[in-house]
Design a protein around this nucleic acid. Structure first.
Lengths: 138, 138
DNA sequence: AAGCTATATGCAAATGCTTCTCAATCTTGA
DNA sequence: TCAAGATTGAGAAGCATTTGCATATAGCTT
């Protein structure tokens, strides 16, 4: 059997990590979310599925999933990290300054330019962070 | 008299803000720095010029200068802000993952692309943050 | 199905950075 | 020089996040 049915859960098992109720609840929240929730939001939502989930477990699980490459951590405004599942294509973010909404976008041309610039400076890029902060045009 | 001799100090006066020993010391530190110091570093260095400077004043002054557009706040790695004087051309940062060194660069082409992407999404960019994290090429 | 054991959890205390409170001290314009 | 009000230092408070520890539990082994 290959990984055609790979999910974060099966990945957890593969890593020898235990699949607990709490972890399933948190993964469920991340799968349902489309708004880059904060740790606190994840806690609230996870508790709807499993009231026993604690703050500490949310943080510990998010840290673990981040290390495993399953979730991405964003620090948009300096007041609390916001998370998303890393199951889609790489993308950057545009944050609406008025509503806080997050729009995702992807630009191969910008990525290409980034690599060129880094190369000129003698560097290989491991990762990057590009955030645009703006307001809806009138 | 025009602003040919404009400095952060004269700007302060112009804004009706008092020029204190502490603020001068902090501005001095920022002018001498070329390493994007943290608040703690700024406190230590400012105290060499004026031992009375307190942590609270460093934070208050940095916040004030940031609001005034005199300093830029960077949140490179999520563990403490790093500051720089906003007296030069706009630039982005490349952070060396091995040494923590910060290399500055500027790419009009990337900025242009950013503006185009934002426009396609219906947004005007107020500011942006672009950070490349990489390692020196062999 | 029951037992074992290391992993995972909840709770609460601790941390690290930043901000606030407030009495005392300065800067500045008159 | 003076008064008025802005600014400061010291320490308490805030917030998001992390950690210590006793208990609970997933998942392997009988």
């Amino acid at each position: 059997m290959t990984d055609v049915n790979a999910t974060p859960e099966t990945d957890l098992r593969a890593d020898g990590v235990r699949v607990t109720r709490q972890r399933l609840a948190i993964l469920h929240v991340l799968r349902e979310a489309s708004d880059h929730p904060r740790a606190e939001d994840i806690l609230t939502r996870a508790r709807q599925q499993d009231p026993s989930v604690s703050q500490a477990t949310v943080y510990r699980t998010l840290a673990m999933l981040e290390k495993a490459g399953t979730v991405l951590r964003n620090e948009f405004d300096g007041s609390g990290a916001r998370f998303e599942l890393a199951d889609r294509q790489h993308h950057d973010h545009l944050i609406d300054l008025d509503t806080g909404a997050v729009v995702e976008f992807h630009s191969p041309r910008i990525e290409q330019l980034q690599a060129e610039i880094a190369a000129e400076l003698g560097y290989d890029i491991a990762w990057h962070r590009l955030e645009l902060y703006g307001r809806k045009m009138p």
